[in-house]
């Protein structure tokens, strides 16, 4: 499948430079995931034509869009806070795009009604945006963006403004609509769950650069930066591999059942970390002394951070925590089984 969107986005502002390649196939949804200030929204704005590119190229279906103003681009945008026109009804908001594309009022209203029906708001057409709930406004914004039949649909944190409960419902619905969209879709988010549920492929940006991309399974199994590792909840270390061992700090080696050589990552989940009061003996291949620095609730368990030759996060049960008499400053032994770690090449 050849790419519908083929973009190399370069935009500089002050000291910050965005420089990323993006390719999206027809019908594919790509999530642009990254921490705040990574350049995600800038990337979306350059695609929409709201921020000028200072370099690179932007082709959609073989057509060069670089010099086109936003109104001439075959795109639809769902903004983070939706930006529904407050003076227009939901129907007129959705009909706004078709009207600007030369459709007469009646046809535009028919298109709007069709889209409102599709997002389950057929009976809400006459309402003004302020009379809609957050979830409803999100759906109207989606209908408005799709009503112009965009080749490229852009969503900027589409669920960020919703409360947790509405978010869950809306996420499922959004997934259905994105699956039906024949064009390319780019979703900008900082929420890994949104990205994992909604996107076919993840592109992770940090400081204006792509640091990792691939499907969810690959990224969650083999994170390549601290940000990604934290995102998917793994401890991640980079070092020099030699067979089953990887040197990750001065004189400190982690052992894995995987085989690597040269520049390599080692990753393991916090749940694989066991804590002991004295040096453990037996099967674990990785043990080291450490000092507890932080304890936080994490679901039903506690997540603790430990300093030592390497910094590590561990998940333990409240019962275990009580038994170990955990408090910051406490000296402990850390154990991680070799079978619970994954080692993979960094290049």
């Amino acid at each position: 499948m050849s790419a519908l969107l083929d973009a190399h986005l370069v935009a500089s502002r002050g000291a910050f430079t965005l420089d990323i390649h993006l390719e999206i196939a027809p019908g594919e949804t790509v999530a642009l995931l990254g921490p705040n200030g990574a350049g995600k929204t800038t990337a979306l704005r350059t695609l929409a034509g709201l921020t000028a590119l200072t370099g690179g190229h932007l082709r959609l279906d073989g057509r060069d869009l670089t010099a086109l103003p936003p109104e001439k681009r075959p795109i639809g945008v769902v903004f983070q806070d939706y930006l529904l026109f407050p003076h227009l009804s939901a129907r007129d908001n959705v009909a706004f795009g078709p009207r600007r594309h030369g459709m007469d009022r009646r046809s535009a209203h028919a298109v709007a009604d069709k889209w409102l029906d599709r997002v389950g708001l057929g009976s809400h057409g006459a309402r003004k945006p302020r009379q809609l709930s957050g979830g409803q406004a999100q759906r109207v914004a989606l209908a408005r963006a799709l009503a112009v039949d965009p080749q490229l649909l852009l969503l900027d944190e589409p669920l960020a403004a919703l409360d947790a409960r509405t978010r869950l419902e809306t996420r499922g619905e959004l997934r259905r609509h994105l699956a039906d969209h024949p064009g390319a879709t780019l979703l900008v988010t900082h929420d890994p769950l949104d990205a994992l549920v909604l996107a076919d492929r993840l592109v992770i940006v940090e400081q204006g650069r792509v640091v990792q991309e691939g499907d969810a399974a690959t990224i969650t199994a083999r994170p390549r930066t601290d940000y990604v590792a934290r995102l998917v909840g793994l401890n991640l270390y980079r070092g020099s591999g030699d067979g089953h061992t990887v040197v990750v700090a001065d004189d400190f080696t982690l052992t894995s059942t995987d085989t690597v050589s040269g520049d390599a990552f080692v990753a393991f989940p916090p749940s694989a970390v066991a804590l002991h009061l004295s040096e453990p003996s037996g099967s674990p291949r990785n043990t080291w002394p450490a000092v507890l620095t932080d304890i936080q609730h994490h679901g039903d368990n506690l997540r603790v951070r430990l300093d030592g030759p390497i910094t590590v996060s561990a998940d333990i049960t409240p019962a275990a925590a009580a038994q170990l008499d955990l408090s910051p400053g406490r000296a402990l032994w850390v154990a991680v089984k070799a079978t619970e770690t994954r080692a993979y090449p960094a290049v």
């Binding site: 709201l50 109104e71 600007r100």
Partner: peptide, 17 residues
Amino acid sequence: DSRFEEAAATLGSTRWT
């Protein structure tokens, strides 16, 4: 909020409209 104007532009509206 001038972002409403940006939203209009992405929907195909010229600056005058």
